[in-house]
Design a protein around this nucleic acid. Sequence first.
RNA 1: GGAGAGGUGGCAGAGUGGUUGAAUGCGCACGCUUGGAAAGCGUGUUUACAGGAAACUGUAACGGGGGUUCGAAUCCCCCUCUCUCCGCCA
Length: 424
Amino acid sequence: MLEITRIRENKEQIAKALKVRNIDVSAQLDELLNIDNEWRSAKGELDSLAAEANKIAKEIGQLFAQGKQEEANAAKAKTQELKENEKALKEKVSSLAESLQSKLYEIPNVPNETVPAGNSDEDNIEVASGGSIPDLGEHAKPHWDLAQEFNLIDFELGVKVSGAGFPFYLGQGARLQRALINFFLDEARDAGYKEVIPPFVVNEASGYGTGQLPDKEGQMYHAQTDDLYLIPTAEVPLTNMFRDVIVKEEDFPIQITGYTPCFRREAGSYGKDVRGLNRLHQFDKVEIVRIEHPKNSRKALDEMVAYVQGIVEKLNLPFRILRLCGGDLGFTSALTFDFEVYSAAQEKWLEVSSVSNFETFQANRLKLRFKDENKKSQLAHTLNGSALALPRIMAALLENNQTADGIVIPEVLVPYTGFNKITK
RNA sequence: GGAGAGGUGGCAGAGUGGUUGAAUGCGCACGCUUGGAAAGCGUGUUUACAGGAAACUGUAACGGGGGUUCGAAUCCCCCUCUCUCCGCCA
């Protein structure tokens, strides 16, 4: 959520910046500012009315204390009209505040000035790449065939027990999965991130805090009996740790990491993009989160991108890094870099990480602040990134590393798997 | 799930209708004191919004919402969370 003061002061600039997302919010901003003006004047009126009422109430108290009953009662009568005005004004103020709030929720984050204009993922800009795409020859199998052949993942069994998109990982497949999780967590810890195991369900307030609510409600599983949401990403609990918190400036940078399963309804997804591990309702992910001083967040984002690149390289996967264009940028993000790895049998790029700087957008919703050198509270910046999402990494590993007699495990993972090749 | 108790400032903990944004203690900050430190003494120490260049002023907030009242942390109603005991249970 954008700060209203920022909109007041930089309306034109914000409208212009949001054009990068292919949306025109000028009219919305004007409406917002109108409401804000109305709200402020009503609030001012209410405040002085309340001041007057408070003053009289105090006087009445004193009159009673002095035993001047009659004068006190006379003063009481005087406040009747005041009370009625106050009540009406109060309602006006709160309804204006409410409508202001809901309008504010509708405006997406202002893209960073380095975000390129564009409509879709086709307009994203590749900023780096690495690794080499293996030549698998004609007999390359997609990972869903390999998973079946080596008995690593059972999609059918998942359908029976839960539904499509909830696979069973079996034997060496399960061990590889666990190895990846442990490898990612260890790497993150070595890079200075504090490990956390958060709850996998969150309340409504947390959903609002990081921006999943109100607009992306349909993407989350909702346990209605208890009004809890299954987390779509560890970002939600890890960032909400800092909701309503005023951190100390010297605590920056705050770096945390956590592994969680992620649950996504993926309403509306279908077709061959969802085949195998490409898109699941439940998947594992290790997330890194940073809470930063505003002046350091840009640098922090670069560090996070470099970190993610490092682990992708250790896994020897061909990758590319994309700077997301305005049209592909998430609602809450100011700047995002996506990582894709090449899955050589499917012959396609798969997104495995998204590293974003939200600047103050989430912090404003979260009321996540710090005291600056002048002892003024200021919104912090929040950032996060996948490091990494497992299924597509698994897909690429299986496909890219297939050989005539098995699937080769990357060297860095062998200490974690306990085997260096998946065999029948 | 049943019964009970309770949610007050960074923490502990008073306060049951009237200068209470809130005693007191701890903590913290600054100053005095000291060779230095501790102790001691003094001053200060919530947040949000509005107005203001600032000093500051006004309003709101004692879990959340609503009500009674001239006036509510204090009374009433609803919700919520926590704790204790019992039950169930990994």
